[in-house]
Computed example of a mutant assay.
Amino acid sequence: MDGMLSQEEINALLNGMSSSDDSDKKINTQADSLTDAEKDAIGEISNISMGTAATTLSSLVNQKVVITTPVVSYATWSDLADTYDRPCVFIQIYYKDGLDGNNILILKERDVKIITDLMMDGDGTNTDGDLSELHLSAISEAMNQMMGSASTSISSLLEKRVDISPPEAKIVDLNDTIDAGDVAPFLKDLFVKVAFKMEIGDLVDSELMQLYPFDFARDIYKKFVKDKQTSNESKAVKTSSVTTNAAQSDNAGMNMEQVMQPNQGAPTIQNMQGMQNISRGVNNMMPMMQDVNVQPAQFQPFTAGVAPVVQPENINLLMDVPLEVTVELGRTSKSIKDILDFTPGTIIELNKLAGEPIDVLVNGKFVAKGEVVVIEDSFGIRVTEIIK
């Protein structure tokens, strides 16, 4: 009566606005989604590529690595912030050949520390402190080799060359103050999330995530389906060709039987013409049915005896061939961590004792021992023993 709305009318208006917003979200979700076939293709490709990547990582860390079957779903930036560890490492993967797009791998901070420690010949327990540039450099190299091998698997699957650019690793603290668009433009909206369970020996039992923009996921699916159709069409053409040739052969046989049926009296003009046509067909097939002269291979009998002696003068043919002579003072083995600690003045202990003979190698083969001498201003070696 006084122009003011009652509480019931206010509630009705609010409910109407809420239902309108919900319908908009549903429309957006339908626009940013994959069909079941597309999700299955992404899951299959991810499973194959990550299986190869796990083998590569296993060789890098010298541990058994298992990456299980992927789970494909959708997510937003806020979903990651609510469910994933802080901070974590984002590795950007850009495809430069075969595929046009990029995706992101996400690893937990502790997992990165364990992987890098194992790569540096550690036992995987050195996880104290913050992530450094050394960690990012090491994990980038690991991802480069892992995704490189994964690209090879995708190449075989799509039957075309697929290659990536060197990955870029970045520490990201998932919170509200970070703009998702600064990390990757597609993270501002809904995106495809492929989650894997990753196990590294007894040290890691964690989750590895791979994020795709919808356009890139659909592009992979289209190439996957197109290559399969092309392969099936090629097989169908070959099968059709074989079937046609077999049918022609059967028809020729049937026509011959019809013309040559017994007890039919003298051949008619039609039968004579049929025989001539068949004769032409048989003559046309003759190049495919020519006799081939097949004989068993003849080998000289083997008789044991003394090999012929090479004449000494034949060595002259090799006299001018250059060989690389190396004098080796000693060797040692160091971890990547120790090598990175090298500075001017660092002393490296070798496996040779003082006064021990020096090894002489020719083209990498150990042939002699000797001792170091000084000839004017140069070092030299006096051979003391020839290795037999």
Rank of each mutant, 00 (worst) to 15 (best):
W77M: 14
K238I: 04
I139T: 10
Q273T: 09
N103L: 12
D202M: 10
T29G: 02
D205I: 05
L107A: 00
V321N: 03
V306C: 09
I339L: 15
D22Q: 12
P166M: 09
N316D: 15
L136K: 13
E207Q: 13
A54T: 11
I42R: 03
T239C: 06
D176N: 15
H135N: 15
K64H: 11
D111M: 12
D24G: 03
T76W: 08
K365L: 12
G370Q: 04
F302Q: 11
I348L: 14
Q276A: 14
Q30S: 13
A297Y: 05
K113Y: 00
D79M: 11
L317I: 10
Q290F: 02
T125P: 01
I154Q: 06
K160D: 00
Q276Y: 13
K334S: 07
S206H: 07
K226I: 05
M256G: 00
K334D: 04
G201L: 10
L34T: 05
M143T: 12
N283V: 12
S155R: 07
K39D: 03
E356S: 15
V372W: 02
T384I: 11
P287Q: 06
N11P: 01
L118P: 02
F224V: 06
Q145W: 10
E257P: 02
L340N: 09
N245R: 12
E356W: 11
A53C: 14
E38L: 03
E371S: 15
V372E: 12
Q261P: 06
S231Y: 03
S156P: 00
Q30T: 13
A150H: 04
K160A: 00
V374D: 04
I114T: 11
I91N: 03
I10C: 04
C88W: 00
T52P: 01
D163G: 08
V383N: 01
M319A: 15
D182A: 14
D36M: 10
F299Q: 07
A354S: 09
S140N: 05
Q276F: 03
S206P: 09
V325C: 10
T56W: 14
I178Q: 05
T346H: 03
T230L: 13
P287H: 12
I269V: 06
E313N: 13
A37C: 05
G370H: 08
Q248L: 14
L203K: 09
E324L: 08
D22I: 02
P344R: 01
E9H: 01
N251D: 04
S240Q: 11
S335H: 12
V192Q: 09
A247P: 03
S19Y: 04
K113C: 08
V204Y: 03
P344V: 01
D176T: 11
G16T: 10
D377R: 06
R382N: 15
N255Q: 10
N251M: 06
I178E: 05
V242N: 02
L158P: 01
G355S: 12
S149V: 04
L353H: 15
L203Q: 07
V61A: 06
T346K: 04
I387C: 02
S137H: 08
D121I: 00
P185C: 08
K64V: 12
G330R: 09
